[in-house]
Design a binder for these strands. Structure first.
Length: 493
DNA sequence: CCCAGCTTTAT
DNA sequence: TAAAGCTGG
């Protein structure tokens, strides 16, 4: 006779929150007792896309979650093992017939893991309930009716977290279970330059954005320094599910009714929608992680230069804005959208390196790494979708425009601090005499430019535009437009 | 990804 | 002068 208590397990993945969490909501709705589970899985911890900063962010999120759960006399069971082993172990304590989690639009590693898990659930007579996340819909053939579906998703009020008395597995029971499991330490460095993980911190960013920072959203969005305060900075909290896109959208919507800066809020909301679009694209085209979505670009062969790649990663290309961006990203985990585009443009066009060589460094550095945005954006910026305008950014033009006083540059490339502004933008223009005057030697104190901007720009542009006339590229462009957009106009057909 | 608004190019 | 290309947001 089976006397084990029955629980619904909620498997937390990249949705580290209680509020507006459909998996938790559905698990509670059944009336059964609910156990929240997070597992640090070796296959992910060892994966090259992730880095220490992500694991720390997750740990901080879990600590925050547990603080919130204290009032319910519960906590998340946090283990360090693969998910199947974790569930297997839990089955010695509970009868588990239902597991709840969100549909994850992840990388190949999580996709494979989920397929295995599905098989495991089937063999163990467990119902695995996966809910829609971020409005992204699984199994679509094209975008027919997609906007309406997303509208419907956003229209629903965020789901409340309302367990009845003692509905969550109590702390004492979880402590007992932990005795026989591999429990990771949740301690994280106290002082870092990274945004701190956790819903309560995410809420603080949201509050300060909506109460004071958002009016300059549009004017500052492309400026490397000003964007850091005029943009919301909630991306890591969205990426790791501390905040739901829907609740943010709703807050913006309500604020708009009384706001004097409606345009700024509209722009912000529009970008929230684009976030959903890109994740949807990746959901429907998961091979994008490794190869260009436009198969015509598979034959684009670029020669790999480790020397260029190291210079780029460490911020030693000799182009101050590129270097400042890369060093700032490495230190803080954040860069505004335009500057991300610029460093990818420099890597793929000026250094003429395959975008695949940039993926893991960037995903490790972006605290807000979101697979569904990462790969589509990388490919688009590399000019390998066939359906978008090429964008080859000029780092000098951008620094003069967006960092006119070179303050961002001087902050992150201190070698250039003592130079006057024009030379901080273009140190390679200094004559020998001027270098002597500033006690600054190019090639010693700061690198010479590793490539020439004009020639590399032209070479990349010519090669990519030529390929765009290729038959396969054109066919693929048609296919991509048909599958991922509602637009019908086709170029060059 | 789209859109607006502008500039350049092709015929 | 319409279409295509470019740029900022």
């Amino acid at each position: 006779m089976n006397t084990k208590p029955q629980v619904n397990v909620v498997w937390l993945k990249r949705d580290l929150r209680l509020h507006d969490n459909e998996a938790i909501f559905n698990a509670l709705k059944t009336g059964r007792q609910v156990l929240l589970l997070y597992s640090f899985e070796p296959i992910l911890m060892d994966d090259a896309h992730y880095s220490e900063r992500h694991w720390n962010f997750i740990k901080e999120s879990l600590v925050d979650l547990n603080a919130e759960l204290k009032q319910y006399n519960s906590k998340v069971l946090i283990v360090q093992s693969d998910i199947i082993a974790a569930i297997n172990h839990l089955q010695s304590h509970f009868r588990i017939s239902d597991i709840y989690s969100h549909q994850e639009t992840g990388i190949l590693v999580t996709y494979e893991r989920d397929k295995n898990f599905k098989r495991f659930c089937k063999n163990n007579l467990i119902n695995w309930h996966e809910n829609i996340n971020n409005g992204v819909i699984r199994g679509l053939k094209d975008r027919e009716g997609w906007n309406e579906k997303v509208d419907a998703f956003y229209a629903i009020d965020p789901l409340p977290f309302q367990p009845r008395q003692d509905q969550l597995v109590p702390i004492e029971v979880i402590n007992e279970i932990e005795q026989n499991l591999n429990i990771p330490s949740l301690s994280t460095p106290e002082f870092t330059a990274f945004q701190k993980g956790g819903r309560s911190t995410g809420k603080k960013y949201l509050k300060s954005f909506f109460s004071e920072r958002y009016p300059n959203y549009m004017q500052h969005i492309s400026k490397p320094e000003l964007a850091r305060t005029s943009c919301s900075r909630i991306s890591p909290y969205i990426a790791w599910g501390n905040l739901s896109v829907r609740e943010v959208y709703h807050e913006a919507y309500h604020l708009k009714e009384t706001s004097k800066h409606k345009k700024a809020l509209e722009a912000f909301m529009s970008r929230l929608r684009w976030q959903t679009h890109f994740i949807q694209k990746f959901e429907m085209e998961h091979t994008m992680e490794e190869a260009s979505v436009n198969k015509g670009f598979h034959r684009l062969k670029k020669s790999i230069s480790k020397k260029y790649q190291v210079a780029w990663k460490t911020g030693n290309t000799g182009y101050p804005l590129v270097d400042a961006c890369m060093r700032c990203l490495n230190e803080t985990g954040y860069l505004n959208f335009r500057m991300r585009a610029l460093v990818v443009s420099f890597f793929t066009h000026n250094l003429w390196q395959p975008w695949q060589e940039a993926t893991t460094h960037l995903s490790q550095m972006f605290l807000d790494f979101e697979p569904g945005i990462h790969f589509p954006q990388l490919q688009m910026q590399a000019g390998e979708t066939g359906i978008n305008m090429l964008r080859i950014y000029n780092p000098v033009k951008n620094s003069l425009e967006h960092d006119p006083e070179a303050s961002f540059i001087k902050k992150w490339v201190p070698e250039l601090y003592k130079l006057d502004t024009p030379f901080a933008h273009q140190p390679y223009l200094m004559t020998a005499l001027e270098q002597q005057f500033y006690n600054f030697k190019l090639g010693r104190d700061y690198p010479n430019p590793i490539v020439d901007l004009d020639t590399t720009r032209k070479k990349a542009g010519d090669a990519l535009w030529k390929l765009r006339k290729d038959k396969t590229v054109l066919e693929e462009s048609k296919r991509i437009l048909k599958k991922h957009t509602l637009r019908n106009k086709l170029q060059n057909t």
